[in-house]
Write a protein that binds this DNA or RNA. Structure first.
Length: 436
RNA sequence: GUGAGAGUAGCUCAGCUGGUUAGAGCACUGGAUUGUGGAUCCAGGGGUCGCGGGUUCGAAUCCCGUCUUUCACCCCA
């Protein structure tokens, strides 16, 4: 009986595993060089933890189970609640700011599509506990910088991708300044989030369903067509009369910081970034491919209320999550996927029925820290060299009757094809001195 | 969850409006080649044509169901 893989999951054969490791190693390396420390949590949590933040509808979108004690559990669909829990548990003893990263394996019971599977990996970085107003903007910028630092490192340029940055707070304040009632904000967000997917008439029509006044609709459309900070300044200056100015300053300063960090060309102000109904409270951003063919590569933003919502103190936080699926598609399309091939220092080939000799040398090489392999098939030399080539061996050691009698081995450089005969003892002596 | 397209060897696909024993390239295994690799040539293994049912003398081909997958919705924490 043949059992197929579960819908929306992937099998990682060695070749695929090399790609996965290459991506994840890059994430980890960039996290570390940007000053983040790695953490992880359990792969399942109490179901309640995910309901707390996102409501009951979410239960349909995650894999849940009952354990033998009747506890309702769920496989994690994201790691941010776990992060909040872990941070809250030790909040009084953790030095701030807390700069942590993780690469959790996550599951969501959604319908699989291009760039979206039911099981995937997601790079998460978060900065928690930067309270000062100005430095908060620096933390937001650092999260974006770290994100771009990775994308740039793997070879993507500002021609390939853009970080689209916006602010929920600026948007909310603007809508309030137009006397849009509080209970209309959320439904309007939903419409604004679709702006880029819809023809402009449909978009305006949908807005009109939420806001009866045509003048206001036009003003919202004006706001949404702003694509630079000076323009935004004009608009917001006129519209905001009391203390609503600070939210605008936040986004301006984040962009100033990004300019100072040298990644200005990757970043644009884009008011259409709203990010669904998430827990974001301020700056929000997404990275998109400039061709607009794929869904978002990553998303993030400021979530100042989350720790408090999880029963901890009100400590501000900002972060980013990047899944592996869309990223891999984009990198593959751009020819930037370059997993490092397995390296093999030595392949030991033997002639005739003297396999024991080959194994003895392989074992010696391995004990000294070199990677070494031999052939289980032990065909003729031609076959073994072929196998060595296929395994990308850097060097080949050849031993036959002649060499054994002389106490020597032949060492062949597979790139140049040159080979020399050398005393076995001498060969290992030289290896030792090289490794020191 | 809703709607549409696709499913033939490990992979990419051919197989005409139903008609003998379902093919090719790549990959894999072996040989040419028992002391010198990446090439070439030759040979071989590998298929319940996604699965189940139906129509028919006869189904990879037509019909229904189902699973998987792709795309568009919903959603995207």
């Amino acid at each position: 009986m043949k059992i197929p893989p579960v819908k929306g999951t992937r099998d990682f054969y060695p070749q695929d595993m090399a790609v996965r490791n290459w991506i994840i190693d890059g994430w980890k390396k960039v996290s570390v060089r940007n000053g983040f420390e790695e953490y992880d949590g359990p792969i399942f949590e109490y179901l309640k933890m995910f309901q707390l933040k996102s409501g009951d509808e979410i239960v349909e979108q995650l894999f849940s189970l009952k354990d033998r004690g009747g506890r309702d559990l769920a496989i994690r669909p994201e790691i941010t609640p776990t992060l909040a829990r872990m941070v809250n548990q030790k909040i009084n003893s953790l030095p701030r700011p807390i700069k942590w990263f993780s690469v959790p394996r996550l599951c969501r019971a959604e319908r699989p599509q291009r760039g979206r599977l039911r099981e995937f990996f997601q790079w998460n970085i978060d900065i928690i506990g930067v309270e000062d107003g100005l430095k908060k903007n620096l933390a937001d910028a650092e999260v974006i910088f770290t994100t771009v630092d990775y994308l740039r490192k793997v070879g993507l340029t500002d021609k390939d991708i853009k970080v689209k940055i916006s602010s929920r707070e600026v948007l909310a304040n603007y809508l309030r300044s137009l006397d849009v009632p509080e209970d209309k904000l959320e439904p309007i967000y939903v419409v604004l989030d679709k702006k880029n997917k819809l023809p402009s008439e449909t978009f305006e029509q949908m807005l009109g369903e939420q806001v009866p006044d045509n003048k206001i609709v036009n003003k919202i459309v004006d706001f949404m067509s702003v694509d630079s900070i000076p323009q935004l300044e004009e608009l917001v200056k006129i519209k905001s009369e009391s203390g609503e100015y600070s939210a605008y300053l936040d986004i301006k300063m984040v962009l100033d910081n990004l300019t100072m960090m040298g990644i200005k060309d990757f970043c644009v102000y884009d008011p259409s970034i709203v990010r669904g109904l998430a827990y974001y409270t301020g700056i929000v951003f997404e990275v998109h491919d400039t061709a607009g063919e794929l869904r978002a590569i990553c998303g993030g933003g400021r979530y100042d209320n989350l720790l408090r919502d999880f029963g901890g103190p009100a400590i501000p936080a900002t972060g980013m999550g990047m899944g592996d699926c869309v990223l891999e598609i984009l990198l593959r399309e751009k020819g930037l996927l370059k997993p490092e091939p397995r390296e093999l220092d030595y392949f030991v080939a033997c002639i005739g029925f003297i396999g024991e000799e080959a194994w003895r040398i392989v074992a010696k090489l391995r004990s000294m820290g070199y990677s070494a392999a031999f052939s289980y098939k032990a065909g003729n030399l031609s076959k073994q060299l072929k196998e060595a080539s296929a395994q990308k061996a850097e060097k080949c050691i050849i031993i036959g009757q002649e060499e054994i009698e002389e106490g020597k081995i032949k060492v062949k450089d597979m790139a140049t094809g040159q080979q020399k005969k050398i005393d076995e003892d001498k060969f290992f002596e030289e290896l030792k001195s090289e490794s020191k």
